[in-house]
Amino acid sequence: MNRTHSRRLAGVLAAALLTASVAACGGDEEPAEAGGGGELTTVTLASSPLGHLAPIYIAQDRGIFAKHGLKVEVDTETSDLTSVPSVLAGKVDFATGDLTTLIVARSKGLDVKAVVPASASTGKAGADYGALVVSGKSGITSPKQLDGKTVAVNILTNIAAAAAREAIRADGGDPESVKLVEIPFPQVPAAISEGRVDGAWVVEPFLSAAKAQGAVPVGWGFTDLAEDLTVSAWYTSGAFAKQKPQVASAFRDAVREAYAYAREHEDEIRAKIPTFTEITPEVAGRITLTGWRDEVSRQAAEKLVGYAQRDGLITTAPDLDELILS
C-alpha cells in the first residue's frame, strides 16, 4: 500500500478517534425518538452527490420518510473519507461509506455501524455500475494484461482499489506487479484518453463518460469480490444506534421502502438524478444504475475483511456483529 495514502488514512482515523473521545465526554441530553408526539425527527445525512441518492430524495418528496417519523437533510459537501469524524462527533447522523473503509475504521476501534446499503453491485458482469477500463486503442483485452502497468483508482485504500486488484487476480494476473495511482473519478476519462494511465477503476456516471471517450471495460471487479456485494453503506455511530434505536430502525425501514419504490420506478430515478448532480438527462438515461439491496451482505463483508488483511490495510479482523446493525 502506498505509504503516503496509508498515512493519510491513518491520520483521518486518528482524528476520528480523538473526535470520538471528545464526543464521549459530552452532555447527557436525552435523545428524541422518531415520531415522538407526532412530530418529525430531523436526521442529517452526508454523501457525495451521486446517483445512489436519488431514492433518498424521492422518498423525501413522496413522504416515505415522514411516514416513518423522519425528515432528512442532506449534506453533499462532506466526502466519504472525511465523514467518519463527522458521524462520530454527531455533526451528521448518517453518512455513506464504502464497506472496505468502514471495515478499516472498525478494525481501528472506531465505533461505526453499517445500517443499510447505500449502493450495491448489480451482480452482473458486463452490466455493473463499476468497471476496470482501458483505452480502446491500447490492445489490452483482459485484466491480466495490466500486469506491470499503471492503474488509477479514486482512493488507494478503499473498495475501488480492492475491485481493481481482484479483477486482475481473478483473470490470472499479478496485482502486486501493478502500480496503483490515485485519480478522482471525474478525471479518469481524460487520464485514459490521454494515455496518462494504462487502466482505471471507475464507476458511473464517469464509466459512461470514459466509454464515450473511447475507453472499454475489460474487467468487472465488483462481481469478482463477492456474489452479493454491498459496495457502500449508510452508517451511523454505535453510540447513536444505541441511544436512538428507534431512529436508526426508522431510517433503515424508510430507505428499504425507498428502494422498493426505486426498483419499480427506474424512470423516476433517472429523471431525479440531474436535479441534484451535474449529470445531464441524456447521460442519466443511459448509465447503469447501482443495485438496491435491503441488507448489508455479511458474506461480502467477510470477504472484504480477508482482502483488507491480504492487502495490508488491517492486521486484526473487526467483529462484524459490531459493524453491521442487527
Rank of each mutant, 00 (worst) to 15 (best):
G173P: 07
G312D: 00
R286N: 07
V247Y: 08
S138M: 13
V116E: 02
F206E: 12
P85Y: 09
P205N: 06
D198T: 09
W201C: 02
L323S: 11
A284K: 03
D174V: 03
K113V: 00
N154A: 13
A317T: 04
T101R: 14
A131Y: 01
G38C: 06
C25W: 12
R8W: 04
P175M: 10
I58C: 12
I56P: 01
S138E: 01
S297E: 06
R7D: 03
P281H: 11
D174E: 12
V74M: 08
T223V: 13
A212I: 00
W201R: 01
A54P: 02
P318D: 03
L207Y: 03
D198L: 09
I314K: 00
V197Y: 11
A241K: 06
R3A: 13
P31S: 08
L304E: 05
L40V: 04
L225D: 00
I103D: 00
A233G: 00
R270Y: 10
A254G: 04
P318A: 11
P274E: 00
P49E: 09
A15K: 15
K113L: 03
S119W: 09
A262L: 07
G130V: 05
S193L: 02
I183K: 11
I273N: 01
G37M: 07
L132D: 10
K242E: 12
A54S: 04
G221W: 12
I192K: 15
V87C: 10
K244C: 04
S21M: 13
I273C: 08
A301R: 05
L156H: 01
E77Q: 11
V305G: 04
R310E: 14
R310L: 03
T141M: 05
V92A: 11
K144L: 05
P85E: 04
L53I: 09
V22D: 09
L304D: 01
A120Q: 08
I159E: 08
I64R: 07
S138T: 10
I273R: 08
R165L: 07
D321S: 11
A105S: 10
P55R: 12
V296C: 02
Y259N: 06
D198K: 13
S119P: 06
P245R: 12
R293S: 08
I58F: 03
V116H: 09
V115C: 12
P189Y: 11
A209R: 15
V216P: 14
G195I: 06
Q145A: 15
D228Y: 05
T19H: 10
S193Y: 02
H265M: 04
H265C: 09
A250T: 08
A46C: 07
A120T: 07
G139S: 13
L9W: 04
I168F: 12
L45S: 10
A250P: 06
I324Q: 11
G26Y: 09
P143H: 09
T100R: 12
R8Y: 07
G291T: 06
K113Y: 05
G221T: 08
P31R: 02
K144G: 04
W292Y: 15
A300Q: 05
V22E: 10
V197I: 13
R165V: 01
G285Y: 07
V74R: 13
D228C: 05
W220Q: 10
T96K: 06
A54R: 06
L53Y: 07
I183M: 01
Y129S: 14
A301I: 01
G38A: 02
F94H: 08
C25P: 00
T288C: 05
